[in-house]
Design a protein around this nucleic acid. Structure first.
Lengths: 222, 222
DNA sequence: ACCTGAACACCGTTCAAGT
DNA sequence: ACCTGAACACCGTTCAAGT
């Protein structure tokens, strides 16, 4: 006879994440995850309320891996940079799962912790809470977008070298009179620089924007 | 007898977008769209290669509405602000469709036009093309994220007043010692300020970040 | 050229039933 | 407490066929 307890919740979450990573979000199916564990689809309903519940658990696990650095005496923006870098570093290996994060930042315990910390740092900077809430929300969402849009990824399943070359070729084939910059930058759009540089610049972009957000006057519209 | 041409491509796109707006992306189904036009599901395959093709067309239409302002003599960042404001203004009525944009910015003609213009403005600012490509990609993706994460939306179908109140109540019920800022800002997270302020601040955040991106030295990590 | 009908291989989810 | 089996109402997509 087999073991009484056939499936374990944590293992189910792991395979759901693994399937998302390898084959995209659409491939994550109750029936498929069940099959990986040699179990009937219905068995999963003992562990999750429904399919959304599986996704909730996946994101809860991912966000739970984001380190909350100990507070120190450095300026708020330096600490913010560390926090946000931790977020992108944690999410970047799982771009297919990243879209699930948007709706779960405020519904998941580790998501609330990350938001609270972001809020605290912004308030330390002197920003009023209301604006800080808006900025925190925009910031965290933008970082998720960075992971989704990482160069060399179409948004679907794992792209191989051929896909990347095809993308590059498509850009290079564009009419150069209409898209001069795009053609010139075809290389950067397809593979881009290193992941590390991409994410450092992305976090810098956001944190720099935050630092400017204190001056209420409209500096931008010329 | 009925008219020979039963369905029109543009109308199909319209109903796909309308269904997405009203009931969420998952409700957009070939069978459902067909039914709205009193036609067999198979009829749609004369007009689109597959379901992805419908989504491609929806995003192509949306991005085609984004105005490309005429170039003028104002500084690059003022023009950038206008361009990006046009993008968010165009997308914000369609938050459910927004996630489809990520993978289609570089595969759709109006998306390429928007990217080319963004790139041109960044290059005008003196940024090298490679970095400009990265920044353009990050920027456009971040703005899409702003639309997806607009306060008072869970990410699913259209939330009514009750949903918003429930969200707010959930935040207010949080332990205040662990989440002091979050509880204080519950109001901003649920309905937030006006849409207009939200998007203006969001665009400002990004454009301000761009203006800082020229100084290569690391100003941030304390 | 455009649409239909029947069929196939999949979904998520319910319900009642087993052990 | 945990899992199964059968069933239901849906999917996207193919193929051959109609007009």
């Amino acid at each position: 006879v087999a073991a009484p307890k056939r499936v374990n919740r944590d293992d189910l979450i792991s395979t759901a994440l693994a399937v998302a990573d390898r084959e995209g979000l659409d491939a994550v199916t109750i029936r498929r995850v069940a099959q990986y564990h040699d179990v009937t689809p219905m068995a999963l309903y003992r562990h999750f309320r429904d399919k959304e519940g599986i996704f909730d658990a996946v994101i809860e696990r991912l966000l739970g891996r984001v380190p909350l650095p100990v507070r120190d005496e450095r300026p708020w923006y330096a600490q913010m940079h560390d926090l946000l870098s931790g977020l992108v570093t944690t999410l970047s290996p799982h771009p297919n799962a990243a879209p699930l994060v948007f709706s779960r930042i405020l519904t998941t315990t580790p998501g609330l912790d990350i938001t609270e910390r972001t809020l605290a740092l912004l308030c330390d900077s002197g920003m009023p809470v209301d604006q800080a809430a808006e900025t925190a929300s925009q910031t965290l969402s933008s970082l998720v977008a960075l992971v989704i849009a990482e160069p060399g990824r179409g948004g679907g399943p794992e792209p191989d070298e051929a896909d990347i070359e095809a993308r590059k070729a498509a850009l290079l084939a564009l009419p150069e009179d209409r898209y001069p910059h795009l053609v010139a930058a075809a290389d950067s759009f397809s593979h881009g620089a290193s992941q590390e540089v991409y994410y450092r610049r992305g976090v810098d972009l956001i944190v720099s924007g935050m630092r400017e957000a204190h001056r209420p006057q409209d500096l931008i519209t010329g």
